[in-house]
Design a protein around this nucleic acid. Structure first.
Lengths: 154, 154
DNA sequence: CTGAGTGCAAAAGATTTGCAGGCAC
DNA sequence: GTGCCTGCAAATCTTTTGCACTCAG
């Protein structure tokens, strides 16, 4: 663990791990460093590759196990695609407080959006059923109105 | 096919099949009869069991293949759960034109809701990105505010 | 008739699990 | 030291595919 680059987010992760009675292992912190260092939306396979490219070896099983914990504690946001695949993004609340996603079908780009009145409407719907919203998914897909897609693919 | 109970929805299904260059086989119509006869939200496994209980034998492979076609043509609505599992419900437009879902975490009951202003907001968000909404998912989960869940589980 | 459709079983993917060895505390 | 954690490989689970036989048109 002494080789890890100090990271201001380790404190938060370590608290989450402790709260679950889990140890702050090298692998868990390395996974968090990787995930928190990018705003990309990635699937398990891509995250694993990105780790390997940095010569960080973490097994697939450990990655699955660790990501579950992070999602449970909202360190990560899990995006469920219509295909049943999952993408993950870190959830630094200070940067993008709360948002949903819209995917461009043409270029695959994922944009984030947030609208306050949608939350109000959702709350009202739940209230009418005597429910308190605990989880929400709101995802859109769209096709580009131009002949050729105008979103720059980097 | 002569043993099939006549069903007013067969016309629509046969049109969809024809439009895809597919034949109106016994299996495809039986699957549609089963799906259109209930308002339940079911996964593949449950649908298969429900068919078997009615002594209708359709292979899992055929069910998957057929459901894909129905979803593509909006005869069925596919609900993607957070776990990555899928549920299907028939899409009789004349009954519930367009709706989303909210699941009670306590009893598993799925309620439908629809709010017109959400559509408007979605449209605006897409417009701003030069996108036309082609697909949308909006699902909520909630916990019951009562001590014990007040939704009757049938 | 004849090619599209079906059932079966095998394959493919994604995720989970059991277990022996390793490491955080 | 001790028991939690990891990596590996095997097991699971869901969905897809190849192929020989069947049937709708």
């Amino acid at each position: 663990m002494e080789n890890l680059i100090p990271c201001r987010f380790h404190v938060e992760v370590e608290e989450v791990l402790k709260s679950e009675g889990l140890r702050a292992t090298k692998q868990r912190l390395e996974i968090w460093d990787e995930l928190s260092s990018s705003d990309k939306h990635r699937d398990i396979e891509t995250i694993l590759l990105d780790l390997q490219n940095k010569k960080i070896n973490v097994s697939r099983a450990t990655l699955y196990r660790t990501i579950d914990v992070f999602v449970k504690h909202s360190l990560l946001k899990k995006i469920t695609l219509d295909s049943g695949k999952f993408l993950y993004e870190h959830n630094k609340k200070t940067i993008t407080p709360k948002h949903d996603h819209i995917v461009c079908e043409d270029c695959g780009e994922i944009f984030e959006f947030y609208d306050n009145s949608i939350s109000s409407i959702e709350k009202k719907i739940a209230d009418d059923l005597n429910l308190k919203v605990t989880k929400r998914v709101h995802q859109l897909s769209g096709s580009c109105k131009d002949d050729k897609c105008s979103h720059a693919k980097n």
